[in-house]
Every structure is written in C-alpha cells, then in structure tokens.
Simulated scan of single mutants.
Amino acid sequence: MTKYKAEIVPLNDNKIGTSAHGTATFVEESDQLTITIEMFDTPANTEHWEHFHGFPDGKPADIATAAQDANHDGFVDLMETEAVSGTTMVPFDDAPENMDIPHDRYPVSDDNGHFSYTKVVPLSKLQANFEAAFGSKDLQLDQRVIYIHGVPQSLDLPTTVAGMVGDFDAHVTLPIAVGKIKRVD
C-alpha cells in the first residue's frame, strides 16, 4: 500500500470572497486507487471541478501562487497555472479512470461551502488511459498538484480571466484552491 496526501490551500481567495481549503488523500493498494477529498469554505452551492495537474515528462509540479498572475488582473486563472503546475491530467469526478474532463459530473458544495468526495478507482484502467494520453502509466502522484476550481456565475470576472474549456467558461475553471501531493509513509 502506498499513501499520498495534499494539504489544499486557498488560491484567488482575495477576489472570490472565500478561502477554500481542505485535504486530499490517495491510497494505492492492489489494483485500486482510493481518492478522498474534503473541502471547506468553497463558494456555496457551486459545482467544483477537481483534478491533478502535472508535467507529462515527470518534472515536479508546483502550486501556483499570486506570482503566476502574469497579466496582473488580480486573478490566477487556469492558463496562468500551467507554467508551474503543468497540464490538467486526471479528473476527480464520477469516473476518474475514464479521464473525461469537460463535463458537469463533479462535486457540488453545500450551503456552507463544504463537500466531501470519495471514489475507488480501478488502477489498471486509469493507468492504461493515462499512458494513452501522456506516454507513461506511472501516475507519479508525488510529482503532481491538485486543483479545485469553480466560482458562481454571479461573480464578476474581468474579460482577462482565461479558462474556456469546451462549453465551460472561466467561472467553472478558475482555480480556488491548490495543494502539492506528497507521499506519506
């Protein structure tokens, strides 16, 4: 059994009015990956996309901070995270092993901005799809970061905030929290 954990800290909290935070754990055992994420103080009653991001070549990913606000609009948008965090890799949705990212099957926070997510994933299927997408079946979780995304449509975002993915705009993709995944023994 191999365990990983991420302490998830706020990002863009000075602009979105909440300081989203929580934890994520990943447990690899036999052919299963158990993913558990618990978040607090996210924007209430909002769907929250969540993924791990990283570099396909295995280079260690780092969390984005306000320093990544390249266009100085006060927001660190999805595109601005890529330089330090890499690309979106695996979603934490209803079926992470399928690696189907743009859709509306992610957790929704309650009236208090809380949500809890647990999923047991067939590791071999996830690894096969990961290899097809990124050239290696090694997830290298300790080289990745987790992002939580999503703010209400009512939040006024400047046009400089990028993040359109398919039919989903920057309200869906704006990062609200991030954590470095570390192996725990």
Score class of each variant (00 low, 15 high):
K180C: 03
D156Q: 13
D138R: 02
G17M: 05
F92T: 09
S85C: 00
D138Y: 01
T2V: 03
Q140H: 08
V161C: 11
V76S: 09
H171P: 01
E131Y: 14
I181L: 07
L126T: 06
S109T: 15
V90S: 13
N129Y: 02
G135K: 04
L174D: 09
T65H: 11
I146Y: 14
D142C: 02
Q68N: 10
A83S: 11
V108Y: 06
S116G: 13
F115I: 04
I176A: 08
L174P: 15
K137E: 05
S85T: 01
A64Y: 09
P43W: 05
T160K: 14
F134Q: 09
K5D: 07
M164C: 03
T42D: 14
T25W: 06
L11E: 08
V184M: 03
E29H: 06
N45G: 10
H51P: 06
F52V: 00
L11R: 09
H72Y: 07
M164E: 11
K3L: 11
T88E: 08
K3Q: 15
K180H: 06
H72N: 13
K182Y: 01
G54C: 02
N112M: 08
N14E: 13
G54M: 07
T118Y: 04
P102R: 06
A61W: 11
E29V: 01
T159I: 04
M79G: 10
E131N: 15
T87V: 10
I181Y: 08
T23Q: 13
F75Q: 10
F26H: 13
E50C: 02
H103V: 01
Q143P: 15
V172I: 05
T42Y: 09
Q127I: 02
T87N: 07
W49V: 01
K15L: 05
S116N: 12
F168V: 00
D156H: 11
A20K: 10
H48Y: 00
T34W: 03
A133W: 07
L123A: 10
A64W: 10
A66G: 11
E38C: 04
H21K: 09
N45E: 14
D110H: 09
I146M: 12
K125W: 09
E80C: 01
D104W: 09
R183I: 03
V9A: 12
H103G: 15
T81P: 11
D62K: 15
G150M: 04
G58T: 01
T36V: 06
V121I: 03
A67W: 03
V108K: 13
T42K: 14
I101C: 15
L155R: 10
S30F: 10
K119V: 03
A44I: 04
S124K: 15
I35L: 05
F134K: 06
Q153H: 05
Q140S: 13
I176E: 03
F26Q: 12
M79Y: 07
H114S: 02
